[in-house]
Computed example of a mutant assay.
Amino acid sequence: MKLVSYRLKNTNESLRVGIVIDENVINLQDAYRAVNPDVDRTRIEGIIPADPTSFYKLGSPAIEVAKELHRQLKNNDQYALHYLSLEDVYLGTPIPEPSKIICVGRNYIEHAQEMKSDIPEIPVLFAKFANALIGPNDDIEKTPLTEKLDYEVELTVVIGKEASKVKKEDALNYIAGYTIGNDISARDLQKRTPQWLQGKSVDKSTPIGPWIVTADEIEDPGKLDVRCYVNGELRQSSNTDKFIFDVPYLIEFISNIMTLNPGDIIMTGTPEGVAFGMEDPKFLQPGDVVTLEIEKIGTMKNRITEGLV
Rank of each mutant, 00 (worst) to 15 (best):
P210W: 00
P207G: 03
L149A: 06
V153Q: 07
V230T: 04
P210Y: 02
A171W: 02
W196S: 06
T240P: 04
K161S: 09
A186P: 00
E147M: 13
V202A: 08
T143Y: 08
T193L: 13
I257P: 03
V153D: 04
L145G: 11
I218H: 04
C228L: 14
I254S: 00
Q236G: 09
V213I: 15
I251W: 02
A215T: 07
Y151Q: 04
N182F: 08
A171V: 09
G232D: 13
E141I: 06
N137F: 12
P248I: 05
L260Q: 00
K242G: 11
V158T: 01
A215V: 08
A163L: 06
E233G: 07
T206W: 03
W196G: 02
V202L: 13
S237P: 07
L224R: 05
W196Y: 13
P207Q: 02
E147Q: 14
T214L: 10
L155I: 10
W211M: 08
K161L: 09
I244R: 05
E162G: 08
A176I: 04
L149C: 10
D150S: 11
R192K: 15
D139E: 14
I244P: 05
E141R: 07
D246V: 10
T193G: 08
V213S: 02
K148R: 14
V153L: 11
A176S: 13
G232S: 13
I184K: 02
L260R: 02
I140H: 02
A176W: 00
Y151C: 03
P221Q: 08
V247L: 10
L172Q: 14
P210L: 04
I180H: 00
L250W: 03
F253Q: 05
Q190N: 08
I140G: 02
G135I: 06
P136F: 05
P248A: 15
E169Y: 11
K168V: 06
P144I: 12
Q236F: 13
K148Q: 15
K142T: 06
D150A: 09
L145Y: 12
I159H: 02
E141W: 06
A163C: 10
G177S: 13
Y174C: 01
V158K: 00
K167M: 14
S237D: 14
P136T: 08
T259K: 01
F253P: 02
F243H: 03
V153C: 13
